[in-house]
Design a protein around this nucleic acid. Structure first.
Lengths: 238, 238
DNA sequence: GTGAAAACTTGATCTGGGTCAAAGAAAAGA
DNA sequence: TCTTTTCTTTGACCCAGATCAAGTTTTCAC
């Protein structure tokens, strides 16, 4: 399998398999440190899928036997609480993966994964993944690292919900977006409804708090989704 | 090293090392499936420590190079939010472990660990642990399992904070305690202040909601810490 | 394009639960 | 034991933010 197969002549992934599979493998932190032969081996085991905006990739209660790696686009992971309300727990960007819980525990998905826009996803089955874990132990440490970072992130989110005001949570979120994109002009990666759900509030309150921040001269709204951060320092230490 | 070393003649761990180390190893899910020789090897690498109530085991910003396994007693893990408020993120019971984040990422602790009562803890150093991971690959799968369960738990907690009322969170917590103890008479493992922090509320509100539940005939207060659940079904589906 | 539906904003109102205060109960020293 | 300190409970009050409603803008299908 050549690495250069799809250069120029066709868009990535119409009914792609190995070609975009390899870009996927090269992109994710848990595999991208492997050498070429090893990556090829992993690529063999990968199946590539595409989804349209709104498609459900898996839902709570589904049995799971695959790891899902986002290649292009973004995927919204959400849960339904005991009282039936939906909450967005994270947004997967290219290179992020999910499905691990069920992968190691042989249990069922507890959350929903939905295409937030058109996405291409690489999947790898449990058996194959476990083979690779045995063959290339360095992958294990990568996965453990990613896991602990995710856990860290999740606990931080919990603490933020438990102790900070909506304004503070929003400000920190905006600052993080800027951090991640390396620019002071940011684009909200979700609509206000989903962002509200992620931050544990309502779309109305998001609108109001953004208006407050703009009134204070901390941000400038370019359009409903794009903002320029005018004073990141003051924003973070609100 | 005999497994029966300290039967009867002395309390576990005065200045114990291997003896209580072994009980520790035998107790935690990540090691307890090893055979005797392997457990002995792990036990060799373990150092046992005791702390008094209120002692800090580690604090945010400390470098970390050990895994901490609770042998007896309980340990409160908490974080300080950006705005300086403290939040209890979990309570470690015998068999639980912590310290993993820094273990795999070579970074610093982001949370605080404090003895909630007198505790004995077994520690194992990064290098030793990584040796065992290579020698006994079954440990890796156990750790991954534990991790994903913890992540699951943490995301559930996040969703609960984001979408449920205090009353509901409290009810679910009580039901979980009963579940875990296998009895309808439960004992709160923390004082109200810490429980409030864990559930993202205040001690006053905890008192009030418990009073509400009692008024509705769902629980009966035995003393400030102990309750009998009278109608678990109605409690969970409040 | 044009129309319909979805998303967003702003206003008015209401309430869960936080805050402050003070009394009562347990726990810990001494 | 008694005393001091720490927890817990209850009351009064208040506010951040939810909810409801109505208008506005954006998006998307045709």
């Amino acid at each position: 399998m050549s690495m250069m197969k799809n250069s120029g002549d066709r868009p990535i992934c119409q009914h792609c398999h190995q070609a975009s599979g390899h870009t996927c493998v090269a992109r994710v932190p848990i595999f991208n440190h492997l050498d070429n032969d090893q990556m090829d081996a992993v690529t063999e085991a990968i199946r590539s899928l595409t989804y349209q905006k709104g498609d459900i990739i898996y839902r709570a209660g589904d049995p799971s036997d695959s790891l899902y790696i986002v290649n292009t686009g973004s995927v919204r992971i959400y849960r339904i609480s005991d009282s039936g309300k939906e909450q967005v727990v994270r947004l997967l960007q290219p290179g992020d993966f999910t499905g691990e819980y069920a992968l190691f525990s042989e249990s069922l998905h507890e959350s929903y994964a939905e295409a937030n826009e058109p996405v291409t996803i690489c999947t790898i089955r449990r058996n194959n993944l476990q083979d690779f874990l045995m063959r290339y132990p360095s992958i294990v440490l990568k996965i453990l690292k990613t896991y602990s970072a995710r856990l860290e992130q999740s606990e931080k989110q919990t603490t933020s919900l438990a102790t900070e005001s909506v304004g503070k949570r929003l400000s920190l979120y905006l600052a993080e977006l800027a951090e991640a994109s390396g620019s002071d002009t940011i684009r909200l990666p979700m609509n206000k409804k989903d962002l509200a759900s992620f931050l544990g509030t309502t779309p109305e309150t998001i609108s109001r708090r953004l208006a407050d921040l703009e009134a204070k001269g901390l941000i400038h709204k370019l359009d409903p989704k794009r903002f320029r951060l005018l004073d990141k320092n003051r924003l973070e230490n609100l």
